[in-house]
Design a protein around this nucleic acid. Structure first.
Lengths: 195, 195
DNA sequence: AGAAACTTTGCACACTGGGCATTAATTCCC
DNA sequence: GGGAATTAATGCCCAGTGTGCAAAGTTTCT
């Protein structure tokens, strides 16, 4: 796994990470509209111009963490044994993901809170989910030889469920753990896609 | 239905409509990035500054049609008899909606195509769906006395299904009609939410 | 080491979004 | 009907955005 990504690649990854963190924390503290790209670039030690080599805009930078999370989910899903149905694999992957990060991943909480309050962040978040939906659907179709339509509905419903579980947990009901709430949301779909 | 909305209100509605159509058609023809707000305002016979009194940005203007569609869906859903389950009411509302506009509502097709190609439009579209999801969930919870979590998952899965059906129909498979495809997508969820 | 490949940066520029003050239109009420 | 009050449209201004381009700086390859 730790082959040679090359110095260049490594530096790029570090910079991207630095910009993301700068964006997230600055914006969490001062509000989306009160932070300029320049301020973010500053904290990340790059020029304003370079910021735009990494991200298309502020929203993109703040929501980069979601992308990473999506990549992890996809990896975990793909690593599930072929004996599981697509739906089971998704459920297990989601479970693993939440165990991997601590229950409340602090950065994730920040992102979700910000998205809740700022339309352009919400939009970015949902757009990212849309991309993930397609990838999952493609894999699902390959895995079970499902119909395209069913595979996409399955992926879409799955992502809707985990997104909603997060929202409900975060803003309404933390009496249960996040994992528990998520599993409960997914359970609602079991009858349709097979437990 | 044609009570007195007042001249002022009527004019505002007309202007909004004019701006929306100008935005949609200009952008459909020249591409999102090749149309300035000024150009849109120009066609709609208002000043650039006034444009921003109606919409926050270009994406907002182009996607206004979706908002209207959402309002219609919500109305139809609310008008369904209380004897139907929430899920049934949603299905019937969706069916009615598609009958009301012609099978392929030309503006809708334009919007979906544009959204497919331009990230910021896609984001806007999905954000709009998110808002609708909340409203539906609230109504659903009131209707059946469902759990909040279940109501939201139901609404989320429903919207995912119709969105996906549209996408699949539009870009992959027009051998069936759009309505048929949508109903097929919803049918995948029947086992979870009751036919 | 030196050439090739790639990245960062500064600069310029058209466009954006919104605050503020002014002008124009509609509504309200006598 | 007409003048005051409300609300919308506009122009001006300005900080901020996103991107093309070319120069300068790094890393990679041999």
């Amino acid at each position: 796994m730790t082959s040679t990504p090359g110095l260049r690649e490594r530096k790029k990854a570090e910079t991207r990470q630095a910009v993301y963190k700068a964006a997230l924390h600055l914006i969490a503290e001062h509000g989306f509209d009160n932070v300029t790209v320049e301020a973010i670039a500053d904290v990340a030690n790059i020029s304003r111009r370079t910021f735009f080599n990494y991200f298309t805009d502020k929203a993109d930078a703040v929501m980069y963490g979601e992308e990473e999370r999506h990549r992890r989910l996809l990896e975990k899903f793909r690593a599930r044994p072929a004996s599981e149905s697509g739906w089971q694999a998704l459920r297990h992957a989601a479970e693993e993901l939440m165990e991997e990060y601590g229950e409340p991943d602090r950065e994730w909480v920040l992102r979700v809170r910000l998205a809740r309050r700022h339309p352009s962040l919400l939009a970015r978040q949902l757009a990212g989910t849309g991309a993930l939906e397609r990838e999952l659907a493609q894999d699902l179709a390959a895995r079970d030889g499902e119909e395209v339509l069913r595979a996409r509905v399955l992926a879409g419903a799955f992502l809707a469920a985990i997104r909603i579980a997060s929202a409900v947990w975060l803003e309404e009901d933390q009496s249960r753990g996040l994992t528990e709430t998520t599993m409960a949301a997914l359970a609602e779909l079991d009858p349709a896609f097979g437990g």
